[in-house]
Design a protein around this nucleic acid. Structure first.
Length: 468
RNA sequence: UUGGCUGUAGCUCAACGGCAGAGCGUCGCACUGUGGAUGCGAAGACGACGAGUUCGAUUCUCGCCAGCCGACCCA
């Protein structure tokens, strides 16, 4: 026997799964459209050179490659690859269609991406991202709106305790420069710093040394981040005022500390200013109360150039989504530099958390049909199908019992176990009078109506029961 | 890439170096024009896969694969 499980890290979605996914996607799409974003779809497969070199060292290795076909197959060389995210394909699209797209191109894209990663909780090799990007503008209004949209999505899904962590690549670089970390070690230092919340200051110190960032630079860096932790504590004790005071105090203090630490660093100072603008704009949106400056946030993808953000919830180690500004990515595909900023929500992670917390509406797992039409015998199968047709024309979801030999009791049982709320029976008596019997499986009540009125009757009953 | 745990019926899980068990689910019957409840009965397992130790392995050992948890990384 061949194994029948899906390939590693890939999943089949049974009907209940698909319903849950479509529910979340529906909310995402609705919010994104309300922010004026337009749908885009791109191929699963890209030319391999489109993808390589865009994600950094790690990302490069996680790209699913597709071997050359035909006579070149033996060489093992790849010329195509499955897309790794939706941002790079967008950049390619923007470069390709240039002027034909609006000046400010706002698109959303909900499609699967593939990563040759090791599967884990909330992490798969094929997963959906719900991306939201705006190209053509350098304004921090874009960042604020994108944070607001992501925040609206989660709020509408029922999340109450998420945080949008916000940082800035230039600020990060500035902090490292100011601490005296050599430019070629920035990457290593960031990887270590990113773990601050997990392994603590001592852990980061150890890792910094391991990665070659030792001595004065490492110490200065850590002192800065210890100061950051102190700000957090201080802010916690100011929470007596209106809601949000703590967070505002924290963000303000954090920006102040950054300015102080960065000193004359020009790019860093500009970054801080951008963060300040984002905070200010976001105050007018639903995201305002969610954003927290986090100077240790780094993010793995190499194409970010400005603000970076990530959404986290307490009960999931990873993030629910992340994004940032990438002003040079489109330029990698064309001479024209096009600034851009975007955000990606991870559908699978949202679903993992929502499933665990039972955040899905109860009626999502509703029955496949509103009514099951039973089959009486050989000769009346045609009548049953005709009745089904009539009910369907009336807008009902209708299942026809497929086997003619089975006793009516069995057919009722089938409807019952599948949760179909109504059963229609047209035996010899009913048919002789042009009628059909309708049984409400939940109340057990049954009534006989003219066939022509069956659809209307059922619709009324379904509406009356309300929770369908 | 790395450490730990697990792998037995469709599902959840027992027991045991010597005949493989339950609950739930499925199917049948009691109930030949009516489901849910109850009772009775049935089907369903090459014990993930491969090798070794043994008179004998589901059990012990090794390998391999898969899943879960943590590290690394990420959505």
């Amino acid at each position: 026997m061949e194994k029948t499980q899906p390939a590693r890290g890939m999943r089949d979605f049974l009907p209940a799964d698909v319903r849950r996914r479509e529910y979340v996607i529906g909310v995402v799409r609705g919010v994104y459209e309300r922010y004026g974003f337009e749908p885009l779809e791109t191929p699963a497969v890209e030319n391999i050179e489109t993808l390589t070199g865009k994600y950094g060292e790690e990302g490069n290795q996680l790209i699913f490659k597709i071997l050359k076909r035909g006579e070149h197959e033996r060489t093992g060389a790849a010329d195509l690859a499955l897309r790794y995210d939706l941002t790079v394909p967008l950049a390619r699209v923007v470069a390709e269609y240039g002027e034909r797209l609006p000046k400010f191109f706002k698109r959303y894209q909900i499609q699967p991406v593939w990563r040759a990663d090791r599967p884990a909780r909330g992490r798969f090799r094929e997963f959906y991202q719900c991306d939201l990007d705006a190209t053509g503008s350098r304004s921090m209004i874009v960042e604020a709106e994108i944070c607001a949209a992501a925040s609206d999505v989660l709020a509408q899904l029922g999340f109450t305790n998420f945080t949008i962590r916000l940082n800035h690549r230039q600020v990060l670089a500035g902090v490292l420069d100011a601490a005296g970390v050599a430019p070629e070690l920035h990457g290593d230092a960031l990887i270590a710093l990113d773990k601050l919340d997990k392994i603590g200051a001592e852990g980061v110190a150890r890792e910094l040394i391991e990665r070659g960032v030792a001595g004065a630079a490492g110490a200065k860096l850590l002192r800065f981040f210890e100061g950051v932790a102190g700000i957090e504590k201080a802010a916690e004790s100011v929470d007596v005022g209106a809601p949000g005071t703590e967070r505002e105090a924290f963000n303000a203090a954090m920006l102040g500390r950054l300015v102080e630490f960065l000193g004359e660093h020009e790019a860093g100072a500009r970054g801080v200013d951008e963060l300040r603008q984002i905070l200010q704009f976001a105050e007018a949106t639903g995201a305002g109360a969610r954003i927290k400056i986090d100077p240790s946030l780094a993010r793995g993808l190499s194409y970010y150039t400005g603000a970076i953000m990530e959404i986290s919830v307490p009960d999931l180690a990873g993030s629910l989504g992340g994004g940032g500004r990438y002003d040079h990515l489109v330029g990698m595909f064309s001479k024209q530099e096009v600034p851009a900023c975007g955000f990606s929500l991870g559908l699978e992670r949202i679903i993992v958390v929502m499933t665990e917390r039972e955040m899905f509406p109860a009626d999502l797992v509703s029955a496949a049909a509103d009514v099951l039409v039973t089959i009486w015998d050989e000769s009346s199968a045609g009548d049953a199908l005709a009745l089904a047709r009539e009910l369907r024309a009336g807008g009902l979801r209708v299942d026809v019992y497929p086997e003619r030999g089975d006793k009516v009791g069995k057919q009722f049982k089938y409807a019952s176990t599948r949760g179909v709320p109504f059963v229609a029976v047209a035996g010899p008596d009913e048919r002789a009078r042009g009628e059909v019997s309708l049984k409400d499986m939940r109340s057990g009540e049954q009534q006989t109506v003219r066939s022509a009125a069956a659809a209307e009757t059922l619709k009324t009953l379904l509406k009356g029961n309300g929770d369908g």
